[in-house]
Each structure stands twice: as C-alpha cells, then as structure tokens.
C-alpha cells in the first residue's frame, strides 16, 4: 500500500535529519533524543484521538494491552506478538517483524544501525503512556534483525 510506505519514508527522513543535526554540531554519534522527542509528541497527540471512544482503562495492564493491539495496529498495521510483565511495572513488548527493520538483511551486518530505527517508536510509546498519566522509561533491544523488544519501565511516584 502506498500510504504505508509514506510513513516509512518520512521516518527515515527524520533519522537523516537527526544525523545531519548531530554532524553539524560536531558530534560523532547521532543524537537520537531529537527523534525520540518527535515520537513522544506524536504519541501524545495520537493517544488523545485513539482513546476518544474507548471505555476507561481498568488498570495499567489494560492500558498496555491497548498499546499492544489497537495503538500498534493504528501505527504499524499489526499487533505486538508477545507481551510479558512481572506485574511490578516492567513490561516487555516483542514484535517479531518490526516494520522499520523488515527491510534490512537478516544477518548481523547492520545491527549497529538498529538503534536509530527504534528510537522514534520508543518515544511514541512513552508519549502515548504519558498522556494516559503513566510515566515510563522505554528502551528497545534488537538481537536478531526483524524482531525487536521494547522494555517499558513504569516510574511510580508514591
């Protein structure tokens, strides 16, 4: 579908922009916080729309299920393949064919580039949760190429 590819192209342009910015500032490493922030803002705004006609979430796990199913379908046209939790604020979302990584070769050749391609999504999840009043830290882990694990660490302020 043509409209799917547009999102991917935009996403790769965002990464190029961040790379360019870091290069101009004289940093050797790409500053991914820009990409992460763009994701955060998008996630925050999308959440307001997505949850409009939705019944109230029962608890945190219910919210995570929403992220795994409807939120993910809305953005990546598929669901998260596996959700695990320790029931103490740590959630692991596993996507076996993460959209931004499916175009890579499956070997270890490009593994070092993977972090650039998951930063936006980390921000997206964090932004969405932030709008639902859940403060979290989201990190991603890529071990074998098209699959990706997102670790959500809910920050509790008690």
């Amino acid at each position: 579908m043509a409209d799917d590819i547009i999102f991917e192209l935009l996403h790769s342009e965002i990464i190029n922009y961040a790379k360019e910015q870091s290069k101009n500032n004289g940093n050797k490493e790409t500053d991914l916080s820009v990409v992460e922030y763009i994701g955060f803002a998008a996630g925050y705004k999308i959440m307001e729309r997505l949850t409009r006609e939705w019944p109230r979430f029962k608890d945190e796990l219910d919210t995570m299920k929403f992220i795994c199913t409807d939120f993910w379908t809305c953005i990546y046209k598929k669901q998260i393949d596996n959700l695990r939790t320790n029931h103490q604020g740590v959630y692991v979302l596993q996507d076996n064919a993460f959209r931004f990584l499916t175009n890579f070769s499956n070997g270890h050749q490009f593994l070092e580039y993977a972090p650039q391609f998951v930063a936006y999504t980390c921000g997206l999840i964090r932004g969405g949760l932030a709008n639902l009043c859940i403060n979290s830290v989201v990190t991603a882990e890529v071990q074998t190429m098209p699959s990706c694990k997102f670790h959500i660490n809910v920050q509790r302020t008690t």
Partner: peptide, 28 residues
Amino acid sequence: SSINANSGNSTAHTDLRDLYGYVTNTRI
C-alpha cells in the same frame, strides 16, 4: 473510576445552572 464505562457524565446543580462533566481517558 474503574466501573464507569465511557467517561462518565456527572452533574451538579445550582439554582440557575446545570453543570455537566466529562472525563476523558487521558484525564482531561
């Protein structure tokens, strides 16, 4: 908070005014 289906309508009344409230999932 957990029972109310979709963003419960709640009301208060004064002599001249009726007040209606609506809470979204995002606590707005």
